[in-house]
């Protein structure tokens, strides 16, 4: 299961990477990752080149490497999967540290780890150097449908409000002596989810009415 999400990953700064328009960064990220994914996994020096390029970008962005390293935990489930690969894959077998492992699996694990790590680092760098607002403008410049960008805008705007609501409900449950330990406690948590939906939906209706009363006609003002 995915790691819990904290606050957005943006790291305030003024480097050239922070100032670069978001759509340029987005296109660069997609092109870079497609190239990485399409690179044959036996080309080891090329991967070293990718890593060097990425580390150079991290260095010039002045985002502390420890800040990024801590957030690499999202990758953990796949590291576990990659470590299992050599034991489950088929093909000719070889000996590593006295264990019989599959050659294909070993190569696959390497490729998954290398490409996955490059992907997570590059995505983290984009998230760290780009404000959510700038990202939305960038997506709009890239001709992503306006409605989709608007939905994403509302989501980004209300993310903290709704997760805070969830946190308050959690505090309220705990302060009444409730702690979820086994599936018998699911009805309580599911009811919290139900209440959260009703509150979110009603908030959406109120936001829509407030927008209408300020002259909203289906388009966002520039």
């Amino acid at each position: 299961m995915g790691a819990p999400h904290g606050h957005t990953l943006h790291f305030h700064g003024h480097s050239w990477l922070h100032r670069l328009p978001a759509h340029v960064k987005l296109v660069a990220l997609v092109v870079f990752m497609l190239t990485v994914v399409a690179t044959p996994r036996e080309w080891y020096p090329v991967f070293a080149g990718y890593l060097a390029l990425l580390l150079l970008l991290v260095a010039t962005s002045r985002v502390p490497p420890t800040y990024l390293a801590k957030r690499m935990v999202v990758e953990v489930p796949f590291v576990v999967f990659a470590l299992l690969l050599p034991f489950v894959a088929t093909g000719p077998r070889t000996e590593v540290l006295g264990l019989s492992v599959s050659e294909h699996g070993l190569l696959g694990a390497w490729s998954l780890l290398a490409k996955g790590t490059l992907g997570v680092t590059a995505s983290l760098l984009l998230a760290a150097t780009t404000e959510p607002r700038a990202l939305l403008t960038g997506l709009e410049r890239l001709r992503v449908p306006t409605l989709l960008v608007q939905i994403m805008g509302f989501m980004v705007r209300y993310l903290d409000v709704v997760t805070d609501e969830l946190r308050r409900m959690h505090v309220a449950r705990e302060s009444r002596g409730f702690s979820a330990r086994n599936p018998r406690h699911w009805p309580v948590i599911a009811k919290s989810a139900g209440v959260l939906f009703i509150r979110s939906y009603e908030r959406g209706e109120r936001v829509h009415l407030a927008m209408l009363s300020r002259g909203y006609d289906g388009r966002m003002p520039r």
Binding site: P4, I151, M155, F197
Partner: peptide, 20 residues
């Protein structure tokens, strides 16, 4: 836009709700 945005936020938030 506002309703789908809020419902998306709700989906995101419920994915943070852990069931033991």
């Amino acid at each position: 836009a506002p309703l789908a945005g809020l419902v998306a936020t709700f989906v995101f938030a419920t994915q943070m709700l852990n069931f033991p």
